[in-house]
Design a protein around this nucleic acid. Structure first.
Lengths: 222, 222
DNA sequence: GAATCCCTCGTGGAAAACCACAAGGGATAG
DNA sequence: CTATCCCTTGTGGTTTTCCACGAGGGATTC
């Protein structure tokens, strides 16, 4: 079983609940951090002392306080941790339920488990810890659904840029000009029109307004 | 001091943390519910037994499980509770930080305190309990900022309907038709154009796309 | 090398949205 | 009662977006 667990969770109320539940169910040393930077620091220190963490349980969104932080999101945190200690196991424990985001964490960050906070988040988190300990990956029911959803469109960089400019109030002509100035292709007015039309089709949107509303709700242009 | 406190929070991890913190800091009976319906039930039972709750600490968003629930949001919950027991004190404890939403809770629901979950949510919640106990209202630093923000535009019902239809892909002609069919005025194509233009001005949006993106980000058309 | 496919891009016309001007009607103040 | 203001609506013309057709170019296949 894991012998050293680190929990990264910024909200103190949640932090308290998670730590007490995990401590009780696993008889291991549980440590905690409320900031991403602090999490990195603890992981580095533990390695330095020759007693590294086995498992990181991390949230995805972190509050910013008055201090300067170099790392501010769970995504960045996980990338950084993987660089420092590639073998560490990671379970994401978060309120984020958007399929596109959950998929990308398994695809791009090779996490070992994903549990959505909710009515039964804690028992699921315990299950996740057990499963990951035995070398499996774990997905809670909600995230399992998300992973099995078909037609979860992933957008490429070009499309995200295009949508963001639309959301920022750029006209098609202005987007064309912007793309030309920044050497992004295709950049003709006409091609941008086509790209937008394709996105409208993909997301079953009748208007560009609905398109932007939809991708925004899906969390694809944050 | 309060003698009977009820906490409504659906996420078990958070629930655990809040209950243990509140129990520890106040030496009172703390009860908890994970669903809105259950919360209403407990409040009714307590009244029936002649021993009602003094204080409700409630989240705003609640998960839906497989069961049918009649009440599904914190907003509805608070409205219902106020009907049953108008004198009960209410503190909202939530992750929601959007100024428009915070303002509307004080303006329309006469809550006694608002605390945003975060790094120091629990000590702030304790402060809120003390303040409300002494007959004051309490706002945490984040929500205090929100309440003091100028230019937080509140939309009326008509505007919200209009924006929602736009977000759903309706053309201006279709919106006009919809309004005519549903006896909503003004409903001429031309007036709808004007209303949209006014909203664009209010939110400094160059296009309708940007308008919908903006109000969506502000949480005004949920 | 020829056929095919896909992506980019231009053109022109239709549809939708935008905007300035102004008429009519209801509410209000004097 | 009248003048004024504001809201709604119509009209006509411009801008923006939409869309069907087709040309050119690069990559792949046979």
């Amino acid at each position: 079983m894991f012998t050293k667990i680190l929990i990264a969770e910024d909200e103190d109320s949640d932090n308290l609940g998670i730590v007490s539940a995990v401590s009780e169910f696993t008889n291991t040393s549980v440590d905690t951090a409320q900031f991403c930077d602090k999490t990195i620091l603890k992981i580095k220190e533990a390695i330095h002392k020759g007693n590294p963490y086995d498992l990181l349980i991390s949230d995805l969104s972190f509050a910013l306080d008055y201090k300067r932080h170099t790392i501010t999101t769970g995504k960045q945190l996980i990338e950084e941790v993987k660089k420092i200690q590639p073998a560490i196991k990671i379970i994401v424990f978060t309120g984020e339920k958007k399929p596109a985001i959950i998929k990308s964490f398994f695809a791009n960050h090779k996490i070992n488990g994903y549990v959505c906070k909710g009515l039964y988040g804690l028992p699921q988190l315990i299950n996740a810890i057990n499963a990951v300990d035995q070398g499996h990956t774990y997905t809670c029911p909600v995230s399992k659904d998300a992973l099995h959803q078909k037609n979860v469109l992933q957008l490429d960089t070009y499309e995200v840029q295009l949508l963001k400019l639309l959301a920022k109030g750029y006209k098609q002509d202005e987007i064309s000009q912007y793309f030309i100035e920044n050497d992004i292709t295709p950049n003709s007015r006409r091609s941008i029109e086509d790209k937008i039309r394709k996105l409208r089709d993909d997301f079953n949107a009748k208007t560009n307004i609905q398109l932007i509303y939809t991708v925004n709700q899906l969390g694809l242009i944050d």
